[in-house]
Nucleic acid binder design. Sequence first.
DNA 1: TCTGGGGTCCTAGGACCC
DNA 2: TCTGGGGTCCTAGGACCC
Length: 433
Amino acid sequence: MLALADCNSFYASCERVFDPRLRDRPVVVLSNNDGCVVTRSSEAKALGIAVGVPFFQIRDLAKRHGIVVRSSNYTLYGDLSARVMAVLGRFTPYLEVYSIDEAFMDLGGMPADRLVDYGRTIRRTVLRWTGIPVSIGIGPTKTLAKVANHLAKNAPALPGQSPATPGRRLAAEGVWSLADSREQTAVLSRLDVQDIWGIGSRLAARLKRAGITTALQLREASPSHVRRLVGVVGQRTALELGGLPCIGMEEAPPPAKSIVRSRSFGRPVERREELEEAVATHATRAAEKLRLHRRVAGMLSVFVATSRFREKPYANLATVPLDPPTDDTSRLIHAALAALRPIFREGFKYQKAGVMLTGLEPREGLTESLFVQYGRDRSERLMAVLDGVNRHLGPDTLRYAAAGFARPWHMRREHASPHYTTRWDELPNVRAS
DNA sequence: TCTGGGGTCCTAGGACCC
DNA sequence: TCTGGGGTCCTAGGACCC
């Protein structure tokens, strides 16, 4: 049996941990640049606010209903996520951290009648120790655990309804088990294919055109039909719905295959120099992440784009090889500026730029070049000093001038909460009265 | 005025190898 | 008249996830 633990409205819940005034109030958290709603509390959901909606479209609504608005604070969310995962890890020998707010847990051969109780204990402990509410779905495969989690989250407490199944009775407490195969069938017959993990809008539309509208119909369809319709990925999903595990647990995250760093600008950028600064900044951040993973990159791409909501659109991407592969910030900045040159065009209002590193390989065991003298030892020592200084004295204490200083294009973050748990001068104050 | 960021996997076709 | 078989690697596009 597997459990999927998923934090409820994770970013909004993080904001509430250190600001209790936000409890029971509608809260929305915005994407970078304060662009779109990425998370909303159940109270905000009840007001009809959808995830993904541009903030400017709901600004008036937010004001009218006293909705609390926050810019995203990924430093805080990342830190609280690590705490939640640490607590979950105490309840299972195998924890797979699937995303910032979700983890799969191996429950081994635990008897079916103990699963829900165990889930409630996990839930209670995480809430007590971290302040974050989680929902727990239990099933024999990842896909069924996802379905169960969906029920644990979405099934409201149904007052007056007789507790036909143990699952329904406990839904209000945030735990749902789909260990029982009869209940699986009943639940899948009511589940829209669109709501299955792994079936997005395109595949759902394709399935519905073929007359498959419920999860049960997908589970029961002939394997060759499913294979033709939605490929091997969809077929795995169908088998998982039938209780056959096709997606294994991954205990250690596989090494990264690519690293992307990009941002929308706080205001349109037109000048070449500003775009160069932004691209150099992204190259710097990507290089830091690369070294954190102890990898080197074999290729670097730069992309730029104007807003897709304005006329006169332009977007382009250029890739340059890095020979030999490297993790050196100055070489990556050079490569990024070289890649930008052919794709920069005068007369456009750029809205976004980014750097992508691919062809990643482990830093150890890198084949030395026969022909190029590039001072690897020197570069390694320099990067070690750079990272060491910035770790101890703060990000960007040492930096390349190419990345700029004023950074007028920087993203907007007008509703940011403090770094409660990662900066000494922003620790929360507690007063007894 | 204002519309996010960072990933993975699969597939088909082309180029190339022995 | 007749022209093999078995493979890998790379890329672009499409799909998905949170």
